[in-house]
Structure formats: structure tokens, C-alpha cells
Amino acid sequence: MKHNKGFTLVELLVVLAIISLLLTIALPRYFSSVDKSKEVALRENLQVLRSGIDKYYADKGEYPAALADLVAQRYFRKVPLDPVTESATTWQLLPSADAEKPGVADIRSGAKGKTRDGIPFEQL
């Protein structure tokens, strides 16, 4: 009796159904974890940048004119990326409220959208 090597169509369809079922379970968890990690990284980068601005102010008695000043004065090696926009140029720079001390007093994300908690990124 001659046996053909290979899989039948039914066997292939069963395997494809199992794979698709596993993907429908795994993919939403994966994308959720990616979004969560970006949010955590954003909060950390904001904290680091704000700390750098505060240290610059404590050392110099004035706020930096731009984020590049923090790099030039070696507070940072480079400006951290906004992980949501994946760019270092989308940060929103908030000026000092004191007219006698101009410069960047705070920073916000320039990303559109909201966190998983419903807070807009620009309010973090």
C-alpha cells in the first residue's frame, strides 16, 4: 500500500484554527503591555527631565533657555525621548511664571491621546 507523506487539508485547517485562537488571546495582552511600558517610560523621563531642570536652577539660579542647555552643561548626555511619540523634539516646554527668571521651568509630553487611566499625556 502506498502512503503519501504530508498533511491533509483537515489537519492544516485544525492547526491554523489553533494558531489563530492562540493569537487572539496573546496579541491584546502584548499590545497592552507595550502601551503600559511606554506610559511608565514617559513618567520616568518626565521625572528625570524635571529633576534636571531643578538641579540646573539650583546650580545657576536661573532656568535653562532650552533643553539643549541641559545637555551642553552636562546635566544629560542627550535629551531623553518621549516614548509615546518616539522623538526628543515633541516635548512641550513650559516657561517660568516669574518674568524676572525666564526659561524652561517645567516640561510636558507633546503626545496626543490618554493614558490607560484616562489622563491626557500632556497633563502628566
Rank of each mutant, 00 (worst) to 15 (best):
R50T: 13
Y63Q: 05
D59A: 14
L46I: 15
S33D: 11
G52I: 07
V40D: 12
K60T: 11
P28S: 08
L67Q: 00
R43I: 11
A66V: 01
Y57G: 08
F76Y: 12
A65R: 10
G52A: 15
D69C: 00
S37R: 14
K38M: 09
F31Q: 11
S37M: 13
Y56M: 04
G61A: 09
F76V: 00
E44I: 15
K36Q: 15
K55T: 13
Y75K: 05
K38Y: 09
A65Y: 02
V48W: 11
Y75H: 05
Y57P: 04
V71F: 01
G52L: 02
V48C: 04
L49S: 06
E39A: 07
L27E: 09
P64V: 02
S33N: 14
K38C: 06
S51H: 12
L67S: 02
A72M: 08
E44S: 15
L49M: 12
R77L: 04
L67R: 00
L27M: 14
D59N: 13
Q47D: 12
D69P: 01
A66C: 07
A68V: 05
V71M: 04
R50P: 10
K38E: 12
L67V: 02
R29S: 08
L49R: 07
R77H: 03
S37T: 14
Y75N: 05
